[in-house]
Amino acid sequence: MIRINCPVCGLRNETEFTYGADANVQRPEMGEEDTQPWVDYVFNRENPRGWHREYWHHAQGCRQWLVLERNTLTHEIGSCQLARGVEA
């Protein structure tokens, strides 16, 4: 039972959240017309063994998207911030 320290709601069980995706992947600008940047954004992943920055959605809570640092080998949890507040 991973527990996530939501900046809005405090420490809550993983069951309140849904996992989103790799938070290092940058969505291209709306005007981007080439296919490859979109393919990279939508499909290709770094998929690291170890620390991973990732989006989680507090779907059963404040409905905020969060950027969480989590270790994919040990499931250790690092920092957790509102996605809105994270510099792109």
Binding site: G20, A23, R27, Y55, H57, R63, Q64, W65, A83, R84
Partner: peptide, 16 residues
């Protein structure tokens, strides 16, 4: 639910 979560994701991560 999917549409709402998607909209929130776009607004909070890409279209801040």
């Amino acid at each position: 639910a999917k549409v709402l979560a998607f909209a929130e994701h776009l607004l909070q991560t890409a279209w801040k």
